[in-house]
């Protein structure tokens, strides 16, 4: 951890700006999402105030900053609640895929043999399928048992990303388990579980955070695509940008641009932010690409009497 932090802190140049710009965008969305109940003027599915309907398709104005849409919803509120949905789904899907993919990869790489071959086959097959198709299939399958909420959406995205963590962790495990310190662990009598936990885990998960941030951007676009196609989160469960965008398309053709523009902008902005963070981290943490600030080493001029002084101190 300490090591990562130092590496990131010491980055210079383009990588640093990419990282900072990305972080600013992402943090802005996170703050909006966290403060949604206070910032958003209305609930995500609130179309009435005191029994009176909000105006339909009202222009952006002082009352409704981003206007209202055809469902009598306030678009500013929908965008804020949508940020919450998006970040929740992203966080859950990345967390689920790490929690499942990392141990699977570790065990598969360490145990080897037919277990490894079977898992690699399954994961490669998942990886080979188009991810949107996979997500649609899983969201159909999960809609029954889990309903059409955030957890179901996160899980159907999880299936797309598990293979990436699995692959990276499995391959690093295969090479790391040949290290002398793993042999040394066996020599002191460590059982396989201990070897995996104490000797391999910490050394094979180093690239996981980078994959996580890169996947976050991808997860958001897949979520929006699902919502757009009508396979995503049910409109009754939460506000979701992709769904709003798809509903707004007809109005947009009729010249009502605001219901489509703002969810679309939100999607693009958050994807950009997450991608910048991911690329920035990749650039800094990936040793092949890393270009660190070079501090020239300055040797103090050493004279003979200095040396003697130093010894006397």
């Amino acid at each position: 951890m300490r090591h990562w932090f130092n590496t990131i802190w010491n980055t210079r140049g383009l990588a640093r700006w990419i990282l900072v710009a990305g972080l600013v965008i992402v943090v802005a969305f996170v703050v909006l999402a966290l403060l949604a109940p206070w910032v958003a003027p209305y609930e995500f599915n609130q179309s009435k105030v005191d029994g009176e309907k909000l105006p339909k398709l009202a222009h952006p104005s002082g009352d409704y900053w981003l206007g209202t849409n055809d469902q009598f919803y306030d678009i500013w509120s929908r965008v804020i609640w949508g940020a919450r949905t998006a970040l929740e789904v992203i966080f859950l899907s990345v967390a689920f895929s790490i929690v499942l993919g990392v141990p699977l990869g570790l065990v598969s790489g360490f145990v080897g043999g037919w277990v490894d071959r079977a898992l690699v086959f399954v994961m490669d097959s998942l990886y080979a399928l188009p991810s949107l198709l996979l997500a649609i299939v899983f969201s159909f399958l999960l809609r029954g048992p889990l309903g059409g909420g955030i957890v179901a959406a996160a899980l159907s995205l999880t299936c797309i990303y598990i293979p990436q963590y699995f692959r990276v962790v499995r391959n690093t495990t295969v090479s790391t388990k040949e290290a002398v310190y793993v042999e040394a662990a066996r020599a002191i009598g460590a059982p396989p579980r201990t070897i995996m936990r104490k000797y391999l885990f910490g050394n094979v998960v180093q690239s996981v955070p980078v994959i996580g941030t890169l996947n976050a951007a991808d997860a958001l676009s897949t979520l929006a695509a699902l919502g757009f196609l009508g396979f995503g989160i049910q409109p009754t469960e939460a506000s979701e940008w992709g769904y709003d965008l798809s509903r707004a398309l007809d109005d947009a053709q009729a010249g009502t641009w605001w219901p489509a523009l703002f969810p679309g902008l939100a999607i693009i902005l958050l994807i950009t932010g997450l991608t910048l963070v991911g690329e920035g981290l990749n650039e800094t943490l990936n040793p092949a690409l890393r270009r660190r600030r070079l501090i020239p080493v300055q040797m103090p001029a050493m004279r003979a009497d200095d040396a003697i002084d130093a010894r006397n101190v």
């Binding site: 290290a179 002398v180 310190y181 042999e183 040394a184 662990a185 020599a187 002191i188 009598g189 460590a190 059982p191 104490k198 000797y199 910490g202 050394n203």
Partner: peptide, 30 residues
């Protein structure tokens, strides 16, 4: 594994024989 309490090994490359993520105290006490 139980036999390891009786027979031990010292390795050629000390730089590779210690887990880089473990402190000396952890490694020696493990």
């Amino acid at each position: 594994r139980a036999l390891r309490t009786s027979m031990q090994m010292v390795f050629q490359d000390p730089g590779a024989a210690l887990n880089p993520g473990m402190t000396i105290e952890e490694a020696i006490g493990h």
